[in-house]
Nucleic acid binder design. Structure first.
Lengths: 207, 207
DNA sequence: GATAAAAACCCCCTTTAGGGGGTATCGTAG
DNA sequence: CTACGATACCCCCTAAAGGGGGTTTTTATC
């Protein structure tokens, strides 16, 4: 059929992709034209598969799904990316959408939402599963969002560098690092470095 | 058929459970007699389903799969638990096996391994997927394993408590906490608290 | 052209963490 | 019976973090 939506799945969980393929193929409105278990595997065949929709996991074994999404949208702007992942953190959702994804599904979403999402993004629209929709609608103050510099510093702090070491590394005054650090504690509502690092990892604020 | 292995799946990823059910039912040797998306849901029907094998996820929405495994093995010792999760950390595998699981599968394992695992544990044996088998065979020094007390302290440190606050909380001398802290830095090869907390979370050493 | 946010910088002072040593008790596996 | 690991405790000293205040410049946005 000409009207069939061509779907490609990229996810390293083989059990999930098998089940998903059956689900989509059985829907009557879409067909899985390719499955890859890594970004590298997907790159090799994407031009050949020519999908309308790319179902993309964030936690790929080789590179981050965030980066791969940006890569795909640059090379194939016509492909509509639908994120499919376990992550329900604001930071990940926001980065994925910023990188060009048209929709976002959480893996414990209803199976019907998968089909609805595929149809919505294939038609050029956007789709968010219920949980993510609620997440993004929360007041701005609830969302933790850091600047590039802040994320950079947070990463170095989590790697165990002291203010002095960070200062040497990125050619800034130790006093500046101290200021950023104090500001991060404020922004993330952390009492000290231990909590700062915990929140950074839990909220996936650092790569 | 009498020889069919009765399987119950407990996993909150609905897409995965659907696919998995098809896979198992189609194998000819096993049949899915029940699916639950939370521990609570499973508790209600487990006595009725009477499975031979319980396919159990670690990341359940209500309680930890680790605790639920112990609970099931206490109430129904005859049920063979086969862990099915994304976690490939030594700490999780070890705790799961200590809590009575007969096998351990990682979600990106081959689908054939799922069926092989089900048959092995149904027969009273054990089964580890390839990756986990390799993990457990690594020299002991590579595995981070903490005592109860150390895990307790690590958790409190990650919550941002100072030595003094921890001392007050668990009725020990602040000097004792300091000693434990130094020892944890050594054991986890961490330079400071920031790295300590990062490793603790990444290696899933704290609940 | 005002406004605001980000980025960079500075000083004073107190608290906490970290590095270096130790000691004593208990239980258990060799 | 002894050797070891786990638990709990102690002192000295330095390094680093945290709390409190600031200032300036640039760069977007309205």
């Amino acid at each position: 059929m000409d009207s069939m939506i061509r779907v490609v799945i990229v996810d390293d969980h083989k059990i999930l992709t098998e089940g998903l393929k059956g689900l989509i193929d059985g829907s009557g409105s879409a067909i899985v034209v390719g499955v890859a278990h890594s970004a590298a595997e997907c790159r090799l065949s994407l031009g050949f598969w020519k999908p309308d929709v790319l179902l993309l996991d964030v936690g790929l074994p080789d590179i981050s799904g965030l980066d791969f999404c940006k890569e795909v949208k640059t090379q194939f702007p016509a492909i509509n990316v639908l994120a499919l992942t376990t992550h329900d953190e604001y930071s990940i959702v926001r980065q994925m959408l910023d990188n060009g994804a048209s929709g976002y599904l959480i893996k414990n979403a209803m199976t019907e939402e998968v089909l609805a999402g595929i149809q919505a993004v294939a038609a050029g629209g956007t789709f968010l599963c219920h949980e993510v929709d609620l997440l993004l609608k929360r007041p701005r103050e609830k969302h933790i969002w850091l600047t590039e510099r802040e994320r950079e510093l947070l990463k170095l702090i989590a790697e165990g560098l002291t203010n002095g070491e960070i200062a040497d590394r990125i050619f800034l005054s130790p006093e500046t690092i101290k200021s950023y650090r104090k500001n991060l504690l404020l922004k993330l509502d952390a009492k000290n470095t231990a909590v700062l690092v915990r929140i950074a990892i839990e909220q996936k604020l650092i790569g």
